[in-house]
Amino acid sequence: MSLVNYATREITCKIVYYGPGRSGKTTNLQYIHSRVPWDRKGEMVSLATEADRTLFFDFLPLELGQISGFTTRFQLYTVPGQVYYNATRKLVLQGADGVVFVADSQKSQLDADIESFRNLHENLLEHGIDIRQIPVIIQYNKRDLPNVFSIEQLEEELNFRNVPSHPASALLGEGVFDTLRSASEGVLKKLARKLEIPIGDGAGGAG
């Protein structure tokens, strides 16, 4: 749920990077963290296992700048992709304003992509959210590897709701910001439609 703080003129939104294990969710956040200037980002927090697999979540706070006088912030989270960690995956999804589904384009990973997308539907439903009510962006990652399906084939298998999608090679940084921009736009457009933005007097500041 987007949070608008009228006193300090701040908007905070949560975007969750979802997808099967090793599809490149953490890599997306690491690339973003490496490119965003220090005054526009906070510390990246990673709760990972000893083998560097995400255990609970990665977290990266970002500041996009001013929109209509409001400082706009995004909190980017990843979920653990491994099937085993569904309970924690569900928790991270709580309160999400938008979802980036990071699919692995490799032919051998199609079943895992489909299973993870189905799991996203289920977990959103458990939070009372129909997937059609929330901005979802699909990223077809690992385009730089051999033995990948074409974008058209992947669209047919995964994107039956025709949501915005982007090819990417997150390790090389390709498509990472296109995906983030698309997700930011989806989330903020939804916020603009949903909210009347009050002009308060700014007194009694919270935050």
């Binding site: 603009a192 949903k194 933005i197 002009i199």
Partner: peptide
Amino acid sequence: RSAVSGTDFE
């Protein structure tokens, strides 16, 4: 509070 529409924001 008075309010403005989300149009300007968008």
